[in-house]
């Protein structure tokens, strides 16, 4: 520990406050809006699809496609997941096999 207990507590509080601000802000800002405001209803319908797309890219943001394994373990595993999920549609099977394949690839093949 390089900070005092009080300082540590304040830092933890800041991380909590920062996180909660991003989670509560939309609900606070939109509160006065009519519940069936056209734009909010519209965004509620389309935004989840864009947000998951953003989240997938976010997970892969640090993958180097020009050096090292060139992102091949990620690409192969994701293709496997997409294929398995289109074929069988079993959530746990797709996630389990995809993760297993990725672990084998990074530990044994692209190490």
């Amino acid at each position: 520990m390089s900070l005092t207990s009080m300082q540590t507590f304040i830092i933890i509080a800041m991380v909590a406050i920062g996180t909660m601000a991003t989670r509560f802000l939309p609900f606070v800002l939109l509160k006065g809006e009519k519940s069936k405001h056209a734009s909010i209803t519209y965004l509620g319908e389309v935004l989840p699809y864009s947000a998951i797309g953003l989240l997938v890219v976010y997970c892969l943001k640090d993958v180097g496609f020009t050096a090292g394994s060139r992102g091949l373990p990620e690409i192969i595993s994701i293709l496997l997941i997409v294929f398995l999920h289109k074929w069988k549609g079993n959530v746990l099977l797709s996630i389990g096999m995809g993760t297993f394949a990725y672990m084998v690839l990074v530990q044994l093949i692209f190490n």
Partner: peptide, 14 residues
């Protein structure tokens, strides 16, 4: 955590 703003807007009605 700015991406959470999207989650809030998405879940506002739900």
């Amino acid at each position: 955590n700015a991406r959470h703003l999207f989650y809030g807007i998405s879940m506002f009605e739900k």
